[in-house]
Write a protein that binds this DNA or RNA. Structure first.
Lengths: 150, 150
DNA sequence: GTCTTAGATGCGACTCATTTGCAACTGGAA
DNA sequence: TTCCAGTTGCAAATGAGTCGCATCTAAGAC
């Protein structure tokens, strides 16, 4: 289950330019972190990493930028089944939606892309006449390694 | 899309007895609300309704009871795409998992049961060797009535 | 390059959901 | 009826996220 890292680096910044959104020093730092991270970050982690690139970045700017990215559909917000607390996690939205699985024992997060998931969304759109903008499937349970142990 | 209300009333209380969990006046009120409500309640709404049955119920008891119910797999926790704020919503876990759809325009919450969803979970269990304990699929978008309008 | 200003920022105080410590209370087994 | 582990109410704490406001700055116009 590799991460579907098929997008170009710099893509978020390109989106900003395309849509005429002002680019600031702080946003550049935050976007760079979002573009280069391989893990799901919460707001506090994102803040810490962004501050390493630009020490002036403030917590509220991180939240405001996350809200902006969400509004433009450039990132997804995740709970990861709250196995590490009540906050949210963020990841760039890539070409293909994927499922998040969280192991309740070891805390590992796995991702999975499935045609059946696409089919399911198609069914919802058709049978419920519902236009899907964003979808989130999170699963909690036990990963292969932990199944025996638990 | 009717609610899959196929369980007996009193079932939550029966579960408590079966598992030797102490039944208190306050828990009885909270369980009764969970058993009889037809809507998704957040903690504050659940508190208000429970207090109508037993005025002594406290906010912290509601949270503690919700945690207990979650731990025993008797309720599901939902975000409903955060369209009404950051808190959580709860519903009894019934026989069949269902999808929650939230209309981003009118705020309506819809539910949908799908065999394809079951098939997708089966695929995850098999292909990822992952034992599913809990799953949550939430979809945000526009319902049939709002599609034209927006 | 300089001017201009709408939009962005840092800061600190705030809100709101949820948790916790603790002394008092109580369900239900013996 | 007693007993005590488990439960409760209360009040205070925590922690994520938001907001008002004075200041700053990106970037288009000249």
């Amino acid at each position: 289950m590799p991460l579907p890292q098929t997008e170009m680096p710099g893509r978020l910044q390109a989106h900003f330019a395309d849509r005429g959104i002002r680019m600031t020093q702080q946003r550049r730092a935050i976007l760079r972190v979002m573009e280069t991270t391989t893990k799901h970050l919460d707001a506090a982690q994102l803040l810490r990493k962004a501050q390493r690139l630009d020490a002036s970045v403030d917590r509220s700017t991180v939240y405001r930028t996350l809200k902006l990215l969400k509004r433009h559909g450039l990132i997804d917000e995740l709970d990861l089944m709250h196995i590490h607390g009540e906050g949210h996690y963020y990841e760039r939205k890539l070409n293909r939606d994927h499922i998040h699985m969280a192991c309740l024992r070891c805390g590992k997060i796995m991702e999975f892309v499935s045609d059946i998931f696409e089919k399911l969304k198609g069914q919802v759109e058709k049978d419920c006449r519902f236009r899907i903008v964003v979808s989130r499937l999170e699963i909690g349970g036990y990963c292969a390694a932990c199944r025996g142990a638990e």
